[in-house]
């Protein structure tokens, strides 16, 4: 069996024609909706549909290169969406009018998040790469969501610098590929394991930490055990 064909197979070319039409149609529908409705929240959600059109156009090429180009496209959309939505929240929210709720005092809420976080973090380390970072970060975010256990901001601040460190590791790995091509394995492990795992995980956990502030908690009412 031929592993890599010399030219792109006929089936991919046939799917390309459909995929371009789908991408353009998605863009047309989403932009028409943004035109029709001036509500800022609706516009923000419809830009996600525009992103889907962009990803469909990228995916339509159907080679390994296209699959790799989807990843930056997806992440760029995600980062911009997050910053833009936070600006919208800051525009329309009042810090004094945050909803208030009383947390449940249950044994499982104190113990389960820690166990789940450890399990997910270990699984994330095993997976490594983008997926591993996402899994480990989800564990940390869940731990922070369970508000009884949430540490204070000063204790969690180091995670931000950790993510900067991960970014630096990644750049070192990337430059090692070109400065010393013989050490490609070290560079791969630096970029894959060190870089991304440390980078994606803390960011998601920071996200979870910040999310906790959407709700005002009477955490002082819960006895520490």
């Amino acid at each position: 069996m031929q592993l890599v064909p010399a030219t792109v197979p006929e089936l991919t070319v046939r799917m390309y024609h459909a995929a371009v039409a789908v991408g353009l149609a998605a863009g047309l529908i989403a932009t028409a909706d943004i035109l029709a409705d001036r509500n800022p929240l609706n516009r923000l959600t419809m830009t996600d549909a525009v992103e889907i059109g962009a990803l469909a156009l990228l995916a339509s090429v159907g080679t390994d290169l296209a699959e790799c180009l989807i990843l930056p496209g997806l992440v760029v959309g995600l980062a911009e969406l997050m910053a833009t939505s936070e600006v919208l929240i800051a525009r329309h929210s009042d810090p004094r009018s945050l909803p208030r709720f009383d947390p449940l005092d249950m044994e499982v809420l104190r113990t389960a998040p820690t166990a789940l976080m450890i399990g997910l973090a270990l699984y994330g380390v095993l997976l490594t790469g983008f997926t591993g970072g996402a899994v480990a970060g989800t564990g940390a975010a869940f731990y922070l969501f369970s508000r009884v256990n949430r540490p204070r901001y000063e204790e969690w601040r180091g995670m931000e610098s950790l993510s900067g460190l991960g970014w630096a590791l990644w750049v070192i790995g990337f430059s090692l590929f070109f400065l010393h091509p013989r050490y490609w394995l070290l560079a791969l492990l630096l970029a894959g394991t060190g870089g991304i795992l440390v980078k994606v995980g803390p960011k998601l956990s920071l996200f979870g930490y910040v999310m906790g502030y959407d709700v005002r908690v009477g955490a002082g009412d819960v006895p520490e055990r």
Binding site: V75, S163, F174, A191
Partner: peptide
């Protein structure tokens, strides 16, 4: 992602960094 088009991925993580 890491080698032949590594600059794209470094950039992508920088965009995420600025977003955060």
């Amino acid at each position: 992602l890491y080698y032949t088009r590594g600059l794209d991925t470094v950039l992508e993580s920088s965009i995420m960094f600025v977003g955060f």
